[in-house]
Write a protein that binds this DNA or RNA. Structure first.
Lengths: 104, 104
DNA sequence: ATAATATATATCAGATGTGATATATATTTA
DNA sequence: TAAATATATATCACATCTGATATATATTAT
């Protein structure tokens, strides 16, 4: 992984290099991170066209700051919350499945 | 939702009717539950062909009881763990995307 | 430019998810 | 049928994720 990408992930709280520098994520760990980032990106794009972060937060009984975290790809946000948020933008299971499939 | 299905979900810890009986899940909450159950089912089918629950648990630093919960659709299992487990069976993002898309 | 609105960052107490362990119950094998 | 192996259920201390709140910073509208 190149240094720029690594720093981008680490700033969001992703623990890369907890163990020494040269240790990479396993392929499966990498895919998981990529899935979360893809969901995050999809959420941001969909939500922007429809409503504010505050409005979306309200729909799923969450908070505006948490939606901001979700859209910024912060590591503290679960896949569960990402999917709840995306569904609240009207996405279908097909939409979500496509986002995940596109990671591959 | 029919009574039999409701009881099946409730026995796994799904909180249906926290609020009075006649209250249904919202469409989005229903989809989320269905996604989890679909992932759970997919995990069970894939894992069975390849290894024991103990072996899979070891691959993802989890425990056999937790894999059992994951495969039984228990509500205490996060989507994150389900996906980690499915990836450990060699599933690709396409495979996972397809499972989710098929919920729709 | 400034007010209004939207988004980002920081902190935290409480809720939820976790792996571990013990052990009961199925299922498979000898 | 016995033993061996696999899976299910129960409990728990600990870690992670959560919504809430306060507030800083962008962005947009007037």
């Amino acid at each position: 992984m190149d240094q720029a990408k690594k720093e981008r992930l680490e700033s969001k709280g992703w623990k890369i290099g907890t163990v020494p520098d040269f240790l990479e994520l396993t392929p499966q760990e990498t895919i998981l991170v990529e899935i979360k980032l893809a969901l995050s990106q999809s959420l941001k794009e969909r939500r922007r066209k429809l409503m504010t972060q505050r409005e979306l937060a309200s729909k799923i009984s969450s908070s505006q700051p948490r939606i901001a975290k979700a859209e910024s790809g912060d590591a503290s946000v679960s896949i569960e919350l990402l999917i709840r948020a995306i569904l609240a933008t009207g996405a279908t299971p097909q939409d979500i499945g496509q986002v995940i499939a596109d990671v591959g």
